[in-house]
Design a protein around this nucleic acid. Sequence first.
RNA 1: GGGGACGUAGCUCAGUUGGUUAGAGCGCUGCCCUGUCACGGCAGAGGUCGCGGGUUCGAGCCCCGUCGUCCCCGCCA
Length: 605
Amino acid sequence: MCGELRAENAGQDVVLMGWVNRRRDHGGLIFLDLRDRSGITQVVVDEKVTAAHAKADAARPEYVVAVKGRVRRRGEGLQNPNMPTGEIEVVASELLLLNEAKTPPFSPAEDAIANEEVRLKYRYLDLRRTEMQANFALRSRVAMAIRNYLVGEGFLEIETPFMTRSTPEGARDYLVPSRIHAGSFYALPQSPQIFKQILMVSGFDRYFQIARCFRDEDLRADRQPEFTQIDLEMSFPQMDTIFRVAEGFLTAAFDAAGIQLAPPFVRMTYDEAIHNYGIDKPDMRLPAMVDLSDVLTQQLRETLKIEQGLPVLALVIPKTGRLSGTARKALQSEVRHHFGDTGLDSLDLDRLAMSPNQVFQLLAGQIVSRVHLELERFCGDEDLTDATVIVVTPKLGTPALWNYDPQWIYKRVGALRLELGAKFADKHKLFEQTHTAADFKFAWVTDFPMYEWNEETKTWDAAHHPFTSPHEDDIRAGRLTNDKGAVRALAYDVVLNGTELGSGSIRIHRKDVQAEIFRSLGMTDAEAHERFGFFLDALEYGTPPHGGIALGLDRIVMILAGATSLREVIAFPKTAKAIDLMVDAPTPVSDLQLRDLHLRIATRS
RNA sequence: GGGGACGUAGCUCAGUUGGUUAGAGCGCUGCCCUGUCACGGCAGAGGUCGCGGGUUCGAGCCCCGUCGUCCCCGCCA
């Protein structure tokens, strides 16, 4: 193939087929760079080879050609050290134009890339680009590594249906109308959740699937309406068993990308994540928030007009260098703007330190030493003078604040931490990519809350999904009925650099517990039976304890490819409005099709 | 549903305070060229300034609406 020939192939007769990447016409001598997915080779066509030369003359970029010729080692000074095949060239004896090509709207050979609208419309051209070819080669390798690992661990790959039953919880379903049953619909699966649990009931012990999932929600850079999960489930697991398996296949996946991970990953509870990072998917490429609550005594809070009893938090952004006066002021106003009228404010540490008041000086000293401690924990010994510190305080007597619990402040400051991280990342090379294990900060977050208060419907919803087992202790303490907010779930997320890669849980395997959970979610027994009767039935026929996890393959590959959008690692993705610009989907359908499906379009906008 | 950015030649973009015939680079077409590799030289073609309306003597530029792409919030068990 085009990318494979080297100096040791000199003298060999070869046939190459590929696309014309570039053509350099010197009159009597024409150079064609021939490209296929393995790489690029230079072909030389001399005018003495009349027929071939005429064809090379007619050839244009993106023509598909076949070349017969001999590999020749390039002479001194003619070599191109920037190309893997730069030491050789193929001297053409015969040339065939297998197919012509219209002038493409953008060139797959260019480094500069066109806007996404054009790229997506002509996706087949975009996918010819070296970068995209590399992304999909990587994706294939990663998927293969995961398959190999899981099969090696005794997992069985089993497919589950795409056309299934709508479940009203969770995301919006994509629906498929039934022709045979007027007025009824299949739903595309949001995940194979129930099927994989049933497979455990069936005795399949260790199941996995690289499964397509569908969710009809609004898109983001890291969210597509159809996406691929590495879905697995096992019987008789401890949480640790599942962590080990997931760490195992992630290690295999990263190995396929040339990165050696060193599991086990860091673990923290949900409460710790919120307290230290203000978010349930911490990005640990930045230092944690520093809790200064105990440094700010009651007395000091009164003087500084800081609310009692609420957390005071410091953020530290390393490697920013010493900020100029203007930069500090700009930052200050940015922070103000970020918090708006929430009642959060920032304390000027420098002014505190330079204050003639000794109490303030002391306080500043205490804050600095606390922050320094975190910085040391984070990256050995980092010079604090090179970092920027922001101290966030809840202002005294801000009415709105009275309703806010500490969690709200943690989350709010956590959001600022990420915003500033992103801002300084570009400027000061905060996340320098060395493409080694150190760039990839994994964590397990455990003990998620079981329930989430839904302000809209004034009900408790399942935070993960309703098949998640609550902590044994919380069941025994009766919290399922009288203290839902405190119930912890046996649920866990695996997080990488602030992105949720996947989540899972130990499931409920007893019918009575499952029924009680449904009831606690406000479902009557009749409703539960109507929706999940088949599942409750299955639980009664000898269900093993089981649990599992599902990880987003697209997101894993995206991060490994260094991309910031899933569209770079999905061959035929959809736009932010869920449109496929190449095939132009979705489209209206004919009245005949609608009649077959017993559907009528009610409104057209 | 809400907020923001963008939309000018095939592509990437510039276009001053609203003022004559809307520009550049790349690409494309033709001719020349035997050592290029982002080849080079000469000549040339190419525009519904996203679309619709308005203000104005005059709109790429101002106003209103609309469509599309991207990012974020809501949403995503």
